[in-house]
Design a protein around this nucleic acid. Structure first.
Lengths: 343, 343
DNA sequence: TTGTATGCGTTATCAC
DNA sequence: GTGATAACGCATACAA
C-alpha cells in the first residue's frame, strides 16, 4: 500500500502550515481567499483525503453509529437497516451493523466492541428483556436507544417501539370478527418484549371475547422455520384443528403458509393466517398476507433522528415513544367456514 | 458522558507504566506474572476498554471492513450480509455496510468515505461494470474485492462471482426441455455484469436451441416491483403470450408470480417461472420457486476469507474466482401445455 | 522485565 | 490571518 498523503504534505505543497490546511478543510472563517485556494489546489493535486481516525481521536467524534439487529437476513431487520443506512448517510454518519444472529450471549460483548470503536451512539433493534447493559450505559449518559424491542428496566432507557400488545389484540380481534374461535398463536420466546407483549395481547383479546385460552394452540419457542413448520403441520392435522393462525412475525407466517399448502389447506377458505411486521413481500399479491404494520419507515426514521439529537445534545430527556400499530387486511384472512366443534 | 478510563488510569492504579499496560493487553511474552495480574485486576476494577480509535491510529489497522451492497432490503444482499457479518466477527472484524440504494452516482463517494475511515479492506457486492475506481484502488494495492458483480477492467481487479452466463443458460435450457419456446426474460440494466452476463446466457441458450430471439419478450430496465409487475401483466394478457418467464433475480420473480396470480394463471400449469439467486424464501414450499443457486454461503465465506488473506498479506496475487451455478428445480416450472401458436 | 519517549494525523489553543 | 505546539490514547523502539 502506497504511503498515505497527510495534511503536512498538503501544507508543504501549498507553502503553508499544517494548521492552515486544517482550517481550510474545516471551513474556518478567517482564512485569506488566496491561501484557501492554494490549499484546495494542493489537496486536489495530491488527492488528499483526511484521516477520519486521527480526526476522531482529536475531536472525540467518529460520525459512526452502531446498529444491533437480530438477524439481518430476516426481512424486518433488513428493511429497517435499509432505511437507517440511507438516512444516516444524509446525516453524514456511517453505520456498523452487528448481527447477533439471535445469539444473545454475545450481546454485551458486541456492545463493548462498538464502544471500543467509539461509535457516537447505538440503536439496539434486538435485545432480551432482561438485559442490564443498556440501562447501565444510559446512566453513563451514552447515547443509546432501543428500537422495536425494549428492556424491562424501561424507566432507564430510551426506546421507540410499536404498541405490540395493542397490535396483537387488533390481529386477534380481526380473526374473531371473521368468526374464528380456535386461533393458534405462533411466537418466539417471551424473553423478548415483542413476543411477550404480543402474547399478552393475544390472551387479552381472547378473554375479552369469552374464548378460553388453549395452550395446545400456542407455540412459544425459537422461531426456526423447520420447527414452526412442523408444529403448524401437526396442529393442522389435528381433528379439532384451529381455523386460524396468528403468527407473531410475517417472516414466520410464511412457514405457517407453507404448512397449510403442504396440508392441502387453502388460504383463506380453509384456514386464515395473519402476521405481524408488514415486511415488504407480505404486500405482494401472490402472498397477500394480512398483518399488523409497525410503520417501519416512520419508526426507523424516528429512532435515527432521536439518536442523533441525543448525540448532538439537542435533547437530553428520556425518549420513550410508542407508536400505534395498524391492521392491514389482505387476502390471507377470511370468514371461518368450518363447523365449530370445539365447545 | 463520563470521562473515559484510559490506559494511564489503569497504569496508575496498578502501579506500573502505561506501556506495561499495553504489553499486558496485547499479550506480550516478557511480562512478570504478578505484574500481569495486577494490571488485569486494575483493568477489571476500572472497567477499562481500550480505545480502538487510538489503537488504529497507532498501528495503522482498524479491524473494520467495508461492505457495499445494492439495497440491503433485497434478500440476496441481506442474506449475503448476514453471512459476512457473522464470519467477520469470528475473524474479529467489524463491518461498515454502505447501501448504495442502487444510486451509483454516489458510489465513488461511498468508497472514499470508507477509505477516509481507514477500513482495512472493502467487499463490493454491487457496482456498475464501467466503474474505474475499483481498479484504481487495486493498483494502489488497496485490499478490495468485487463480489457477485465485477467491473469491465477485470484484469486489474479481484473478484469472486458465479458464472452468470452459464447459470442463465441452465435456466433457459431447463425451460426449453420442458417444451417451452416462448420464454420471457426479465432483467435489470446491462450496466451490471450480472444482468449483462445473464442476458448473454439467455440469448445463447435460445440460439443453441434454434429459437429466435424476440425482443418483445425482454424487459431490461430498473427492477422496480411495479414496473416489472406491469410489464409481466401486459405480456401475459397478450394473445401470443410467453409460456414461461426467466427472471434474473428471485426477488423480482415474485413480481412475475404476482402478475400471474393477478391474471388467474396457475403456476406451473399455465405458466412457468424460474429465478436466479436462490434467496431463502424461494425454497419455501409455499413459493417453491425454481432457480439458479449462486451458492451464496460458499461465495460469501470465500470472499471474506480472501479479503482477509489480502489484508494480512498472506496473498498478494490476483483473486479471480468464478463459481459454478446450480439448477434447483422446484414447483414453479413445469411442462408446457399450451398450443404452440408462434411458429 | 519494565519505564521513557516518540509517533500516528488530526483539532484546538495559544501566540504573533 | 497564520504558525507553533500541545493534546487525543494508544503502540513501540530504545534504554535501563
Amino acid at each position: 500500500m502506497k504511503e498515505r498523503v497527510n495534511a503536512y504534505d498538503v501544507a508543504k505543497r501549498a507553502g503553508v502550515s499544517q494548521s492552515t490546511v486544517s482550517r481550510v478543510l474545516n471551513n474556518y472563517s478567517h482564512v485569506k481567499k488566496s491561501t484557501r485556494e492554494r490549499v484546495l489546489a494542493a489537496v486536489d493535486e495530491l488527492g488528499f483525503t483526511p484521516d477520519e481516525i486521527a480526526r476522531s481521536l482529536a475531536n472525540n467524534k467518529t460520525r459512526t453509529i452502531g446498529l444491533i439487529v437480530g438477524n439481518i437476513s430476516n426481512p424486518f431487520y433488513a428493511e429497517t437497516a435499509h432505511i437507517i443506512l440511507r438516512e444516516a448517510r444524509d446525516y453524514d454518519y456511517d453505520v456498523i451493523i452487528v448481527d447477533t444472529d439471535s445469539d444473545e450471549s454475545s450481546f454485551d460483548r458486541s456492545i463493548q466492541t462498538l464502544i471500543g470503536k467509539r461509535v457516537d451512539g447505538i440503536i439496539v433493534a434486538s435485545v432480551r428483556k432482561d438485559n442490564k447493559k443498556i440501562s447501565e450505559l444510559f446512566k453513563l449518559n451514552f447515547p443509546i436507544i432501543c428500537y422495536n424491542r425494549k428492556v424491562d428496566d424501561d424507566r432507564n432507557t430510551n426506546f421507540v417501539v410499536v404498541d405490540n400488545k395493542q397490535g396483537a389484540k387488533m390481529a386477534v380481534n380481526h380473526l374473531i370478527q371473521l368468526n374464528h374461535q380456535r386461533i393458534a398463536y405462533i411466537s418466539g420466546p417471551c424473553t423478548y418484549s415483542t413476543f411477550n407483549d404480543r402474547f399478552l395481547g393475544y390472551q387479552s383479546a381472547l378473554k375479552e371475547n369469552g374464548i378460553d385460552y388453549d395452550k395446545r394452540l400456542v407455540y412459544q419457542n425459537e422461531l426456526s422455520f423447520d420447527k414452526v413448520f412442523q408444529f403448524s403441520l401437526d396442529l393442522m392435522r389435528n381433528q379439532n384443528r384451529p381455523t386460524s393462525f396468528f403468527a407473531s412475525t410475517d417472516h414466520i407466517a410464511l412457514a405457517v403458509m407453507d404448512a397449510a399448502a403442504q396440508n392441502g389447506l387453502h388460504i383463506p377458505y380453509d384456514i386464515s393466517i395473519i402476521g405481524f411486521d408488514n415486511i415488504d413481500i407480505a404486500s405482494s399479491p401472490y402472498i397477500g398476507l394480512s398483518t399488523i404494520s409497525q410503520q417501519k419507515k416512520k419508526m426507523a426514521s424516528l429512532v435515527l433522528k432521536e439518536l442523533i439529537a441525543i448525540i448532538d445534545k439537542k435533547s437530553d430527556q428520556l425518549i420513550q415513544i410508542t407508536l400505534e400499530p395498524e391492521l392491514l387486511i389482505r387476502k390471507s384472512t377470511g370468514m371461518n367456514t368450518q363447523i365449530r366443534n370445539n365447545r
